[in-house]
Write a protein that binds this DNA or RNA. Structure first.
Lengths: 174, 174
DNA sequence: CCACCATTTCAGAAGTTATTGAAAGTGTAG
DNA sequence: CTACACTTTCAATAACTTCTGAAATGGTGG
C-alpha cells in the first residue's frame, strides 16, 4: 500500500503536470498542491524547502495564487513571517479559476470582436467569411460568458446558503 | 471604417493570442484563424505565405489541427497538393476542443486520483488532508467529466438533428 | 533613527518550447 | 524503374519562459 509521503509527492507532481497543460506554470501549480494538502499554513521558507525552489520563485508564484484568490495569507501575532494556505473547497477553487479565466480571456475576446464588427461589409467572399466568423465568435463568446457568470452566481449563492446554514446551527444557542 | 485586410490581420492576431493563453500554441491558433476566415481551402504554400512561416511549421501544426478534428484535408482531382479548410461551425469547433481537452486532461487526472486513493489512511493531519484533497478532486473530476460528456452528446444530437432536418428537406423530392 | 528581519524586485542563467530548412520519405505518372 | 511533386521528419538553433540569488525595499520594535 502506498505511503503518505509517496502519495504527497505524487499528488504534487500530478497537479504540476496538469497545471502546465492548462496555461498555469508548473511551480505555481505545485505550490498550490502543497498548500492544498497541508493542514497548516506554510511560510516562504517551508515552501522553498518542500519543493526545492528559490525564494524569489516562491514569492512570485504565491503572489499569483493570491491574485487568483485561491491562496491566502495568514499573520501570526508576534511573528513577522507570512504564512500561506490554500482554499480547501475544491468547487470554490474551480469557480474562482473559471471566474478569473473568464475575465482574462473571454472579456478581451468579446472586446476584440466588437472592434472587428466595425469592418466594412463587402460582398466579396473574403469579406463575408470574415464577417460571419466575427459574428459567430462574438455570439458564442457572449453565450459562454453568460453560462459562466450564471455558474459563478449559483456557486456564490450555494456558498452563501452553506454559510447561512452554519450560522443557523450556531445562533439558536444565543 | 476598418478595411477587410486590416480586419483579417487583427482577427488572426487576436486568435493567436487567445490560443496561447489556452494551452494552444500561437502558430496553430493563427493557422486556424486563417482557415476560419478563408472561403476556400488553402495549400501549405498559401499558408506559409500568408503567415510568413516555414513549411515544416505549417505541416506540423496543420496536422495537430486535424488531430483535434477542427481542420480537414481536401484533395482536388488532377492536383497532388493537399488543401486545408477549417470547420466553420464555431459551436461544433468549441465542442471538439472540449472533447479533446477532456480526453487529454480530465481522464489522466481521474486516473491519477484513482491511484492515489490507494494511499494508506493514517489519522495524522497530513494523511487526512491528503485523503480529503484526493477524494474531493476525484469527485469534482468525475462531475466535470459527466457534464462535458453530456454536453458532447447533446451537441452531437443537435448536430444529427440539424443534419436530419437537412436530409428531410432533400428527401421529399425522391 | 537605527538595526533587524522579512518581502520584493530584477538582471542574468537555466530550462523549455517552437521554428527552420534541408534531407529523407512517399506515391504516382510515364 | 525513374523522375517528379509533394509531404514528413528532425537536428540545430532561435525565441521565449521560468528560476535564481543577491541587492533593494519595506516596515517594526527598541
Amino acid at each position: 500500500m502506498m505511503q503518505v509521503q509517496e502519495g504527497r509527492d505524487k499528488f504534487i507532481q500530478a497537479w504540476g503536470t496538469l497545471g502546465s497543460s492548462w496555461g498555469i506554470n508548473r511551480t505555481m501549480a505545485q505550490i498550490h498542491a502543497l498548500l492544498l494538502i497541508s493542514p497548516i499554513a506554510l511560510s516562504t521558507e517551508e515552501i522553498m524547502d518542500a519543493l526545492g525552489i528559490s525564494r524569489g520563485n516562491v514569492n512570485m508564484n504565491v503572489r499569483s495564487l493570491m491574485d487568483w484568490g485561491i491562496v491566502h495569507k495568514e499573520l501570526r501575532p508576534g511573528d513577522r513571517k507570512e504564512y500561506f494556505y490554500a482554499e480547501k473547497d475544491i468547487y470554490l477553487t474551480a469557480m474562482k479559476i473559471m471566474r478569473e479565466r473568464r475575465k482574462r480571456e473571454l472579456e478581451p475576446l468579446i472586446e476584440i470582436m466588437t472592434q472587428l464588427k466595425q469592418v466594412e461589409k463587402l460582398d466579396t467572399p473574403e469579406g463575408q467569411a470574415l464577417t460571419k466568423a466575427v459574428h459567430d465568435i462574438d455570439h458564442f463568446a457572449h453565450q459562454a460568458d453568460t453560462v459562466l457568470t450564471t455558474m459563478e452566481k449559483m456557486t456564490s449563492n450555494w456558498f452563501t446558503q452553506q454559510f447561512l446554514s452554519v450560522i443557523k446551527k450556531i445562533k439558536p444557542l444565543g
